[in-house]
Amino acid sequence: MTWTADSMPDLSDRRLVVTGANSGIGLEATRELARAGATVVMACRSRDRGEAAAGEIHADVGHADLVIESLDLASLESIRTFAAELDGTVDVLVNNAGVMGIPRAETEDGFEKQLGINHLGHFALTAQLSDQLAADGRVVTVSSAMHERGAIDFGDLHSRHSYGPWEAYSQSKLANVLFARELQRRFEAAGTDQRSLAVHPGYADTDLQPRVARAKGSRIQLGMMWAANAVFAQPASMGALPTLYAATAPDVNGGGYYGPGGLLNMRGYPDRQEPSKRAQNPETAKRLWDVSEAETGVDFSL
């Protein structure tokens, strides 16, 4: 399937919320959504970076309808404030923001940072926006092929006893797929036409990889990351296609998992794929949902 951003329908009557919209996949997705006529709420941790990104999009697209809002997914208070101040219907929520492979740190609320931002923050955000989601609305959660290496360690969810940066990242990305699939099950049980989908960008040239090296203070690793991106990665604009497909294509299936369909599922145009067996375990998904409610203090009932 050769599906590109030009394949998107007219979005002039749609409003989307994109977390982490100021860089990488989020920036490219926002650019193309705006080009298709959508109103895009750019939910960014840094308002300054959000405004700079919006300026770049305006220079490229011209007619972009962008709204910049502050959102720090490492803070449940920030999430509550964002959700309370966001009026009106949300047609699509794109849970995109994330961190990867960083040294162990904790969020404002004491969560291991990768799980806290990548999963728990988005879980809380989705819960608090669920009443505003359109009757035919979608929730698109950006995971990673690294979810295949992940396991949910319910005995040490926040890696307080043992921490590996990539183990924690893989756990958070597995949590993304489990959450997306469980949300779809709950949409169906509630009898709604809403859809929840998970996607992954493949190996895309974004700042996420070099940020890992900068967090470790390693110039050698930083150079290697930049070189690998230059040689092996596909452009961020291609990495954004699965997100755009899941958010806008009429033929996507709720509960589906979409990523690049080319070489090793790391490059190419979007295609439906199968997540790992662990990601398809409904008992794990339900348990994670219950734990996530308890951890974040939100009641996510439909």
Rank of each mutant, 00 (worst) to 15 (best):
Ala105Ile: 00
Gly116Lys: 01
Val90Lys: 00
Lys113Ser: 15
Val90Ala: 02
His119Gly: 08
Met100Trp: 14
Arg104Thr: 00
Pro103Asn: 10
Leu93Asp: 11
Pro103Thr: 11
Leu115Trp: 13
Asn96Ile: 13
Ala97Thr: 08
Val90Trp: 06
Val92Lys: 03
Asn95Gln: 12
Thr89His: 04
Asp91Ala: 05
Met100Tyr: 15
Glu106Val: 11
Ile117His: 01
Arg104Gln: 12
Val92His: 03
Gly116Arg: 12
Val90Pro: 02
Val99Gly: 02
Arg104Ser: 10
Gly98Trp: 02
Glu108Leu: 09
His119Glu: 11
Asp91Pro: 09
Asn118Ile: 06
Glu108Ser: 13
Asn118Cys: 04
Gly116Leu: 07
Thr89Gln: 15
Asn95Tyr: 02
Ala97Pro: 04
Asp91Ser: 05
Thr107Glu: 06
Val94Trp: 02
Asn118Ala: 05
Ile117Trp: 03
Glu112Gly: 09
Val99Gln: 07
Gly98Ala: 10
Phe111Gln: 06
Thr89Gly: 03
Thr89Ser: 09
Asn96Met: 09
Asn95Val: 04
Glu108Val: 15
Val90Leu: 07
Ile117Gln: 06
Gly110Phe: 11
Asn95Ala: 14
Glu106Met: 12
Phe111Lys: 03
Glu112Ile: 03
Ile117Ser: 00
Phe111Asn: 02
Asn118Tyr: 01
Gln114Val: 07
Gly101Trp: 12
Val94Ile: 15
Glu106Pro: 02
Pro103Asp: 13
Ala105Asp: 13
Gly116Asp: 07
Val92Phe: 04
His119Pro: 08
Leu93Val: 10
Asn118Arg: 03
Ile102Asp: 00
Thr107Pro: 04
Arg104Lys: 13
Leu115Glu: 05
Gly101Tyr: 07
Val94Glu: 06
Asp109Val: 08
Glu108Tyr: 00
Met100Ile: 07
Thr107Arg: 05
Val90Phe: 06
Gly98Asp: 00
Glu112Gln: 15
Ala105Cys: 06
Glu106Asn: 12
Val92Asn: 01
Val90Met: 06
His119Asp: 10
Gly101Ala: 13
Thr89Arg: 15
Gly116Gln: 12
Asn118Thr: 08
Arg104Asn: 03
Ile102Phe: 15
Asn96Leu: 10
Glu108Ile: 14
Glu112Trp: 03
Leu93Phe: 13
Asn96Asp: 15
Asn95Asp: 14
Pro103Arg: 05
Asn118Trp: 00
Leu93His: 02
Asn118Ser: 04
Thr89Pro: 04
Leu115Met: 15
Asn118Val: 03
Leu115Lys: 03
Ile117Tyr: 01
Lys113Pro: 01
Leu115Thr: 06
Ile102Ser: 11
Gly116Tyr: 13
Asn96Ser: 10
Glu106Tyr: 13
Asn95Met: 06
Ala105Leu: 06
Arg104Glu: 09
Gly101Pro: 08
Arg104Cys: 00
Ile117Leu: 12
Met100Glu: 01
Gly98Arg: 00
Gly110Pro: 15
Asn118Met: 04
Ile117Asp: 01
Pro103Tyr: 08
Gln114Thr: 15
Val90Asp: 09
Val99Leu: 14
